[in-house]
């Protein structure tokens, strides 16, 4: 749905402004000056974002007994790892492994398949009706929220005898990662100069070779973007494990955090330690691919 809108919203790109990074300082004078309101809002928002995150982190290092008697906004005088110990003893290593398996198992095939599909759609869409119809189907997919079709997905997974298995969560995750990935990747492949394809062809390269030797390296930034984005969504998915698993040993982290709070609700430091441990891997992942993701959001939707 995002696309149906954004595709009609493409502005006539001003010369030199396409996918513009930070433009030269002098030229932006008009935008940079005296934005008092914006500047104030910018810093206030940083505080709004950081205060709860700060609270999560410092509290997770407090002991349950000191939590109730100390000022909640001050860091602990005697930091302790007790909360983290309790979380890890509650089988979080297993949930962590489950999350890694589900995320990697879903994102790698999803991005690979989306890349191949995008390549075919861009290169063959001009002559093949089948490819054009496939593309429209993927675009339609952007309008299907997972929540709304979860009941039939549940039915299909049961019938495939994959209830209570990691595979049962992986397969729908792959499917729901495909539409946006195809959209983003095909936009990028479209930007590869046609002469390059032409010269590959004259060198006698097959489409398969051209795809992996030419299109893949040139679209790498977009591939990183969709990989991070899909990894984030899959890692954080709560609905699929909630619906498709029952056995605690098959839980992924978001569901584990929820049931952990149900179990240790009054132990606030421990609950927050579980939140930190759940989020830490994705923060690390994000730190690695930050530039691509930010550029992807601003370039992909900002048009």
């Amino acid at each position: 749905m995002a696309t149906t809108t954004s595709s009609t919203t493409t502005e006539p790109a001003p010369p030199g402004a396409d996918r513009a990074p930070a433009p030269p300082r002098r030229a932006r004078r008009g935008l940079g000056r005296f934005n008092v309101l914006g500047g104030l809002a910018g810093w206030v928002w940083v505080a709004i974002v950081l205060v709860p995150i700060y609270w999560i982190v410092i509290t997770s290092f407090k002991s349950q007994s000191t939590y109730y008697v100390t000022n909640p906004m001050l860091p602990p005088t005697e930091p302790t790892l007790d909360s983290y110990r309790l979380v890890i003893e509650s089988d979080f290593a297993r949930y962590f492994v489950n999350s890694v398996v589900v995320t990697a198992g879903a994102v790698v095939p999803a991005v690979a398949m989306s890349f191949m599909a995008s390549y075919a759609i861009v290169r063959g869409g001009g002559t093949s009706r089948f490819l054009r119809i496939s593309n429209s189907l993927f675009l339609l997919g952007l309008a299907i929220p997972l929540q709304a079709v979860i009941i039939p997905v549940y039915l299909i997974v049961i019938r495939m005898r994959m209830y209570d298995s990691l595979g049962g969560m992986i397969l729908p995750s792959i499917a729901f990662a495909i539409p946006l990935s195809v959209l983003v990747l095909s936009n990028f492949i479209r930007d590869v100069p046609r002469e390059l394809f032409e010269s590959m062809r004259l060198d006698g390269a097959s489409e398969w070779t051209t795809m992996w030797r030419l299109a893949f390296p040139l679209t790498r930034p977009a591939i990183v973007t969709v990989t991070i984005y899909n990894a984030l969504l899959t890692w954080n998915n709560f609905l699929l494990p909630l619906i498709l698993t029952q056995d605690p040993s098959k839980r992924t982290l978001p569901l584990a955090v929820w049931s952990f709070q149900g179990q240790y609700g009054v132990n606030v430091p421990a609950v927050l330690a579980s939140v930190v441990l759940t989020t830490l891997p994705i923060v690390v992942f994000y730190a690695i691919g930050r530039r691509q993701l930010l550029a992807g959001i601003t370039a992909g939707f900002g048009k």
């Binding site: 189907l137 039939p152 039915l155 097959s206």
Partner: peptide, 30 residues
């Protein structure tokens, strides 16, 4: 357009199978 140089349609098949099974079919299913 690609058709001129080896057919490409099969490249879209894996993605299509997954998406139809867990996207289109459930949409009709619901």
């Amino acid at each position: 357009g690609g058709g001129r140089h080896g057919s490409l349609w099969w490249l879209v098949v894996p993605a299509l199978v997954f998406f139809v099974t867990f996207g289109v079919v459930p949409l009709l299913g619901v």
